[in-house]
Simulated assay, not measured.
Amino acid sequence: MTSGDEQAYTDYDDTGHTRTRLPEPDPYGGAPRRTPHRSSSRSLVTVVGVVVLLIAAIAFANRGDGSSSDGSTAKSDRPGSAPTAPSGTRPVDTKSAGVPTVFAHTEQGAQSAASNYAVALGSTDMFKKNSRDRLLQLLYTPEAAARLEGPMDQAYSADFLAKMGLDAAGDPPSGSTFVSRVVPVGTAVQHYTDNDAKVAVWYLGLIGMAGSSSTDPVTSSWKTWTFDLRWSGGDWKITSDGQKDGPAPVPGDDKAATSDEISKAIEEYGGFTYAR
């Protein structure tokens, strides 16, 4: 991957870094979180439940286009061992609305596109109507964008946003910051031609509300996001996509950071433009 001076994905005119300040007191209490409390478990179940409903809504919208969205392939079509390694080629030199675009018309370009699209679609911009619509128009084929707009609006309903702690416009309460970030770990090409490609992105996701009154602190999850891509209009565009859980590594014995440490880390460590 190549790093740059990208700015926050939470703002289309200013993307690449996610800046978050968490007020005290520390919601974690500085204690290890290997065994969450009952209340935290209930909150996490709520978050996971609504996210599963959202993914199901997106999968429903993609149904019937003749392509698989769960990343599964026949045994004979499964790719061999080919670890993601740097090619030495910059993925892109341009951005559209703050998102890397105009990727190379190659297998590596398709992998770079899928990784960066996952970052954009996993950002807080998806929780706001205007920025979500811009992402759909930018990253999907026109047919897919038109098909998804309605179901996406239903998925990101006011009730769903409220369960995530956001208001109807997708904004967090005063004194809190909503965090949603996707960090790609690797990619796998499951199919490739000059016209289309299927690329799976294994990623670590961060989501939650940062704030002194939050009952759902920022937590992590491991998922695989598979994109069906088509070469269209001089760039790779998404025709359909889907997610599945894992593979997740065994949790370590790391002590949970304090809210000050999390706040400083999120502010200081920005995003990347991901490249194969």
Rank of each mutant, 00 (worst) to 15 (best):
S40T: 14
N62H: 15
A74D: 12
V199E: 03
S232E: 15
E24C: 01
R230T: 14
Q111H: 01
E261R: 12
V102G: 00
P151W: 04
T226S: 15
A104Y: 01
D153Q: 11
T84S: 11
W236K: 13
R230Q: 15
A169P: 02
G4H: 11
P100S: 06
I266S: 04
P91G: 03
P91R: 06
G175P: 07
D14F: 03
A110R: 09
S131A: 13
A145W: 11
G175L: 05
T35A: 12
V218P: 06
A265W: 04
K75A: 10
G66L: 04
I58A: 08
Y140D: 05
R78G: 02
Y140P: 00
N195I: 01
S220P: 02
A168R: 15
L166N: 08
I58D: 06
P184S: 07
R19I: 11
E6N: 10
T124R: 11
V92S: 15
L206E: 14
D93P: 00
G80V: 12
T226M: 06
T84Y: 00
A197I: 08
L229V: 13
L161A: 01
T187G: 00
V185P: 00
A118N: 08
T73A: 12
T258N: 09
L44Y: 12
A74M: 09
T141N: 12
T101R: 14
V179Y: 03
T73E: 06
T124I: 13
S69N: 13
F160S: 09
L44P: 00
A113E: 02
R21M: 05
A56R: 15
T193K: 08
P91A: 13
A31E: 13
L139I: 12
V48S: 06
K223W: 01
G16E: 11
Q137E: 14
D5M: 05
S72E: 12
M164E: 05
R34Q: 12
N130I: 07
P247K: 05
R181I: 14
A110S: 10
V48N: 09
S240A: 15
S40R: 15
S232T: 12
S67F: 12
T84Q: 07
S67D: 04
A113V: 08
D167R: 03
F160C: 06
S112P: 01
Y156N: 09
A162F: 03
A113G: 04
R34M: 06
M164V: 09
A59T: 10
G150K: 14
S176K: 06
A120Y: 02
F272N: 14
L204G: 01
G88L: 04
N130R: 15
A8R: 08
Y140R: 01
I238R: 03
L148N: 08
T46M: 12
G30S: 10
P172K: 07
S87Q: 08
W202M: 10
G98P: 04
P249T: 10
P247M: 03
I238K: 05
P142L: 05
Q137C: 00
T141D: 04
S157F: 04
